[in-house]
Every structure is written in C-alpha cells, then in structure tokens.
Nucleic acid binder design. Structure first.
Length: 117
DNA sequence: TTTTTGACCTCAG
DNA sequence: TCTGAGGCCAAAA
C-alpha cells in the first residue's frame, strides 16, 4: 500500500510510479498502463514511461526491468546500460524471455489495482 | 513562453 | 479485426 498523506498529495507523478514499481515482486511483471490506471490516470501510460527514464537517475533502486508494455514486450531495453540487461535481469528472476517478449505474460502479470486493492 | 517529444494505452471508425 | 488519431503530463529545446 502506498501512503498518501494530504501533505504529500503534490508528490511528483514520478515518485508514485517509482513506489509502485518497487512493490512488484521478483519474477513478476507489470505494465505501464496498469500503473497509470492505479494512479488514477487511465491513459497516462506514456507518463509512466517517462517516469521510468527518470528512474534511472533516481536515488532509490527501481526495478524498471519488471515494467513492460501491454503486449509483454521489452520496449525499454534500449534505455538500459546494455540492450540485453533488461532481459538478463528478468531471466535471473525466472522469467522466460524470447525475442524481447515475456512468455506466460498473462500469469506473470502483476496488477497493482487488484494486488494492492 | 510555446512547441515538440516520449520505455504507451484507449477509443472511434 | 485492424488502423489511425487523440490523450495523458512533464522535461528539454
């Protein structure tokens, strides 16, 4: 659960995104859209993607490799240190990736809207 | 200050 | 079913 104090209501969209991503369990993946939906902006998926780019420079660790698009594709791999870093990170957690596509994506999917109620 | 551009998604036709 | 346009919000130009 993410604490939302009234005083922190103006917290950056990025911060909230980062917090949600940090809650994704190892071996599971989520999507930009799911996060956007959880944060209220149903069509703000694009913003989530932008937030992930900022996550690279964030102070706290953010498992950005667990966030992919709704097709289960690793669209953000080019933004990692190496083009294969994202896939390797996922495989290290037991996620099978073939041709930049997560296998059994449906069962690996972790939806914050339902998991965090 | 205005315009353009994103690791995307949804809706209308 | 498939394709195209619009939308979300912030940062860089």
């Amino acid at each position: 659960m993410i604490p939302r104090n009234p005083t922190e209501a103006h917290r950056n969209f990025f911060q909230e995104v980062h917090e949600v991503v940090r809650l994704v369990p190892p071996g599971r993946v989520t999507t930009y859209g799911a996060i956007a939906h959880y944060l209220g902006s149903r069509r703000g998926a694009r913003m989530v993607g932008w937030a992930m780019m900022a996550a690279h420079t964030a102070t706290a660790y953010v498992p950005a490799h667990r966030v992919i698009n709704r097709n289960g594709q690793l669209t953000g791999r080019q933004h990692f240190a190496t083009p294969t870093a994202m896939q390797q990170a996922l495989e290290a957690e037991g996620v099978v990736v073939v041709e930049d596509e997560v296998q059994d994506f449906k069962t690996r999917f972790w939806d914050p809207t339902t998991e965090l109620e």
